[in-house]
Design a protein around this nucleic acid. Structure first.
Length: 457
RNA sequence: GUGGUCAUAGCUCAGUCGGUUAGAGCGCUAGAUUGUGGUUCUAGAGGUCGUGGGUUCGAUCCCCAUUGUCCACCCCA
């Protein structure tokens, strides 16, 4: 049969794995320095845990797992109308692949509340699956790197998470813009505009302002059924230009009649205050921008919303997050406020590759190859091989006796630097011939000095 | 879910305005070179031209369907 891969999934070669680990290791190290602890959850969750958490669109994109055994049994027993997918689905599928890391985390917190010390700061780096149509920068299996803190309403968390973004992207040498907004401001906007029922449609349309322009945004809002009056009411906001302070002042007067909006503005100011004045959090390569059009689709955000975009390249968002006041409520644990961020490792990979930002020395390979000429010489080399390995040096012996030429080619292709020869002549003289394949220099060293082989070059 | 694109060797792609043995580069195997590679030269293996149907004397090429791919929209990391 012809080998193939499911749509939107990928294999990772040795070099790709090394580069991906570079990203994961960087993120993990920063998470740890901020006091976040690692957890992992299963690849599959109960379907009921996931449905209804991501909106209608999200539910459609959840990968369902077919029940084991006679999965049509219930359909037959209940004589279900097969033309109604919504009726059929729960009868044939009870599990699904996780869609993100936040909902499984909420489930985990609700289930382990007796063991957790709050505020609970956790990070989680695992793959997630979405039944989306793949395209550039979009995969059906991709890795998220999440950090969340649950059990605290302090804006200090937001500030620290922003700093985590900065630390990670600075370490990766990737300058980014961190966009910030607040769901309460958007709610207040919908309220002031007189269209509170259209919050989602309104924010989704507003989110596209940068991309498609004011006219098309207006057209989309009207198309979604948002009243003409409401669309007119928010025009000043879309037209407003100014720096962060000017924007906040504008909002205070423009949305002043909404207490919710004022609260969102205050929260945003509180977050930003951590980055100004005395003892402010320092940002290295990143900058923060208040973006009033930033919406993000997920339904569970209630306060701060964050999104990260790489500078100098058009590539969608490479990270996002926000505050949710009651994510665990549905699992029976009310009032557990939380805030979290996510890194899109796969998109970060694509951006780093496009910008050639991967370090050269990130290649992990074998350092030494022993040549193999015969069964006797092979056996004689094994103790030397072991000495090197025990010293933590990556070494291997050619798997069978073969022509030297062939063994050289093997070393070349694997990028091995040193070839060691311990053949008939060397054995009688108790020496090892070492050749640096990069420089072509070859030396003979005493067998018992093998660990110091580099000092002979 | 909507629209478009493409599908030929292991990989990247030519090509045939429908006609006899479908090509290249890379890769692979072997030799020139039985303990010294990366270069070069030579030879070889490898394809039911995605699948099914139709038109035709004849289809890899034209038409239809189907599956897969990539891209855009929707949405999102």
């Amino acid at each position: 049969m012809k080998p193939s891969l499911p749509q939107g999934t990928r294999d990772f070669s040795p070099i790709e794995t090394t580069r991906r680990n570079y990203i994961f290791d960087t993120i993990k190290a920063v998470f740890k320095t901020f006091g976040y602890q690692s957890i992992e959850t299963p690849a599959m969750e109960n379907l009921s845990t996931l449905t209804g958490k991501y909106g209608e669109e999200g539910d459609r994109l959840i990968f369902k797992i077919l029940n084991s055994g006679d999965f049509t049994k219930k359909i037959r027993e209940e004589n279900t109308d097969l033309s109604l997918p919504n009726k059929v689905l729960p009868l044939i599928s009870e599990k699904a692949l996780r869609y993100d890391l936040t909902v499984p985390f909420a489930r985990y917190v609700a289930m382990n509340r007796d063991k957790i010390t709050f505020p609970f700061k956790r990070f989680q780096i695992q793959p997630v699956w979405r039944a989306d149509r793949p395209q550039k920068g979009r995969y059906r299996e991709f890795w998220q790197c999440d950090a969340d803190v649950v059990g605290s309403t302090s804006m200090l968390n937001e500030a620290e998470l922003i700093q985590i973004y900065d630390r990670v992207f600075t370490a990766l040498q990737l300058p980014v813009v961190i966009l910030i907004n607040n769901r309460k401001i958007l709610s207040g906007l919908a309220e002031v505009a007189g269209a509170p029922d259209f919050l989602i449609d309104l924010t989704v349309a507003l989110d596209k302002l940068d991309k498609i322009g004011i006219d098309k945004v207006n057209a989309e809002m009207l198309e979604k059924g948002i009243p003409q009056k409401a669309v007119e009411a928010i025009q000043p906001l879309m037209a407003f230009k100014g720096n962060t302070i000017e924007k906040l002042n504008f909002l205070k007067s423009f949305l002043g009649q909404s207490t919710e909006a004022l609260q969102g503005i205050a929260e945003t100011e509180a977050v930003l205050a951590y980055f100004n004045g005395e003892n402010a959090f320092e940002l290295n390569e990143s900058e923060i921008q208040l973006d009033l059009t930033l919406a993000r689709g997920l339904n569970y955000y209630t306060g701060t919303i964050l999104e990260v975009k790489a500078k100098n390249i058009e590539f969608g968002s490479i990270g996002g997050g926000g505050r949710y006041d009651n994510l665990t409520g549905i699992f029976g644990l009310p009032n557990a406020a939380g805030v979290g961020i996510s890194f899109g490792a796969d998109r970060i990979y694509d951006v780093l590759l496009a910008q050639q930002l991967f370090p050269e020395n990130a290649i992990e390979g074998t350092e030494i190859l022993f040549a193999n000429f015969s069964a006797i010489e092979e056996k004689a080399a094994l103790p030397l091989l072991d000495i090197l390995r025990q010293a933590g040096i990556s070494a291997e012996i050619y798997h069978e006796s073969a022509k030297l030429k062939k063994q050289f080619e093997y070393a070349d292709k694997k990028g091995i630097t040193f070839l060691m020869i311990y053949g008939e002549q060397e054995i009688t003289q108790q020496i090892v011939t070492v050749k640096n394949l990069k420089s072509g220099v070859q030396v003979s060293i005493p067998k018992d000095k093998i660990l110091a082989f580099k000092s002979y070059f």
